[in-house]
Every structure is written in structure tokens, then in C-alpha cells.
Design a protein around this nucleic acid. Sequence first.
DNA 1: CCACTGACGAGTG
DNA 2: GCACTCGCCAGTG
Length: 110
Amino acid sequence: MRERIYAVIQKIPAGQVATYGQVAALAGIPGHARQVGYALSALAEGSPVPWHRVVNARGEISLRSGGSAADLRQRLRLEAEGVVFDAQGRIPLELFRWRPGSRIEVEKAD
DNA sequence: CCACTGACGAGTG
DNA sequence: GCACTCGCCAGTG
């Protein structure tokens, strides 16, 4: 099950982000956003999954209970890929949300 | 097998 | 925009 979720996350192009619900839908389990987050919680540090590109529906970085340095790493990684955060520490999903099937995946190709 | 938990989402007031 | 409620179901003890 988690394999399916990981597979979808790996399809997220750099510089863009996807919400939990979006990943769930793409994984074939719409409405099961919790399972996505749960799957990520079970991710290993060395996993080949760009989990940092997955944010909640508000465009914020979600993370496990309590304070963790993982969220900071996630933010830095996203910024390194071109994603920007507003003054509220959130990502403008209307600009960075991944659109499967869209041609904006490779902006340089024109 | 039963109960509790948990990186969430959408709807309502 | 914020607070509250319900739904969802795999993992863990």
C-alpha cells in the first residue's frame, strides 16, 4: 500500500509540490489523505522518495507530532528547488501545486 | 482479533 | 479566516 503512495510521490517534479489529498487521489485512493501522511511517517531517511514535496492542503509543511528539525530541512530543500514561502511560512499552492498531465512540467521545453 | 493512533481533507457555522 | 466535527483505514501493541 505504502509502495503505491511512494510511487506517486516520486512522480512529483522538482520545483513543485503536491498535497496529501492529491497524492492519495493519484495513488488511486482519493479521500485517503491520512494514509499518505501515515506512509510518509513510516519513511526511512534514506528512502528514494522526495517526501519534502508533499505538503498539506494549506500549503504548509506538516510533520509528525512535536518539534522536529525535519520540517526545516524540508523547507530548505523546497527553497533550493525554487519553491518560495510567503510571510506565513506557507507555499502559494496556486503557483506551485503540481498539475499531473500538464505541460508545465518542463518549462524550458518550448 | 480489539482498541488506539496518526505528515489530513472537506464541510459547516 | 478560524474552530469544530466526521470520515478514512493501515500500523502497532
